[in-house]
């Protein structure tokens, strides 16, 4: 565990440094050091490193960590290795709520209106899933329910978009919202992302023992003193908060929440005291690497969700194939 965490942390720091040095403009290793140490540099170098790259990279870490955490939480809550905000339509719910909010002009109400709507959308989907999982906890049922919810949310989003074709500015706003990006994300965005992660981590820590107990089934968990309704309430709120704000900040980023807890579990085991922080650490590192790759390798700024989906889908299928026997 310790060695594993050290390797991942080192990777994170190296990736962070690369993200500060690499990219357009004349910025050397020395310049980055100077900016970080507050020494004299040109206004342009300072702008590139301090105003653009550093907050963007830290935001990638925060969002990745939030998604990893949300994934581990969802898998624990639903006792299901394929559960994840993206797969279960939770992110789609957030995206839909944000799109509808934009279409009805909710964004004029203040900077928190759309992220707030996204959180509510995510929580709404989770509540339906929860009601479903209570009566039928099979993996296949849950995933199908998620697929159905995602397609309903997708249909509403498409409706908003088709209305948006008549009203071009609205359409553009919605499209930009749906695609998401790390581009132009800076300190205020990081402040939102970091607070979401901090709050989410605190709430996750609060229910982690409950999630441990849930591994043996809800009856055993209750017999061990777990208040299931409390656990669900806290868990659902946390996942909704994390998934909603991540979607609001950077668009729908799928599969990080699915893949990361699986990798983390292989190294730290199933205990949530270690699994939750490990998923956060690994998620943050992974998304930062993805962002560094899109910034420095790709010719155009690809939305981060595109890359994670391309990487994540094969992993999803492998997991699915492995547990084919368990799914009925």
């Amino acid at each position: 565990m310790t060695r594993w965490a050290a390797i991942v942390s080192a990777t994170l720091l190296v990736a962070l440094w690369i993200s500060l040095v690499a990219g357009p403009g004349d910025v050397s290793h020395g310049d980055v050091a100077s900016v970080l140490l507050g020494r004299e540099v040109t206004a342009l170098q300072r702008a590139l490193v301090w105003d653009l790259r550093l907050p963007r990279s830290l935001l990638a870490v925060c969002v990745g960590a939030s998604l990893g955490l949300a994934g581990a939480l969802t898998q624990g809550l639903f006792r299901n290795p394929l559960a994840e905000p993206g797969v279960l339509g939770v992110s789609a719910g957030a995206a839909m709520a944000g799109a509808v909010g934009l279409a009805i002009g909710l964004d004029a109400a203040g900077p928190w209106a759309i992220p707030g709507a996204a959180c509510l959308g995510a929580i709404g989907v989770l509540l339906v899933l929860m009601a479903w999982a209570r009566t039928d906890a099979r993996t296949s049922t849950l995933i199908l329910c998620g697929v159905a919810l995602a397609s309903v949310c997708g249909a509403v989003t498409t409706l908003v978009l088709s209305v948006g074709i008549e009203r071009w500015e609205v359409g553009m706003k919605v499209v930009r919202w749906l695609m998401g990006s790390f581009d132009g994300r800076t300190w205020p965005h990081l402040a939102i992302g970091a607070s979401a992660l901090a709050l989410g981590a605190a709430l996750a820590a609060w229910v982690r023992q409950d999630l441990d107990a849930l591994q043996l089934g809800s009856d055993t968990a209750v017999s061990l003193g777990v208040d299931l309704r409390h656990t669900w309430r806290v868990g659902i709120t946390t996942v909704g908060l994390l998934a909603g704000l991540c979607t609001a900040l950077t668009g729908v980023i799928g599969f990080v929440g699915l893949v990361v807890p699986h990798i983390a579990r292989a190294f730290v085991g199933t205990g949530h005291a270690r699994l939750l922080p490990a998923s956060a650490l690994l998620g943050g590192t992974l998304l930062l690497l993805v962002d560094v790759a899109t910034r420095t390798i790709a010719f155009i700024a690809l939305p981060p969700g595109v890359i994670t989906s391309l990487l994540g889908t094969p992993v999803f299928l492998v997991v699915l194939a492995r547990m084919r026997t368990e799914i009925t």
Binding site: P81, Q215, L216, G217, T220, T270
Partner: peptide, 14 residues
């Protein structure tokens, strides 16, 4: 202390 009739698989749990 309670033991239900069936305990789920809990993959990976030591």
């Amino acid at each position: 202390a309670y033991l239900p009739q069936q305990t789920p698989a809990a993959p990976g749990l030591t």
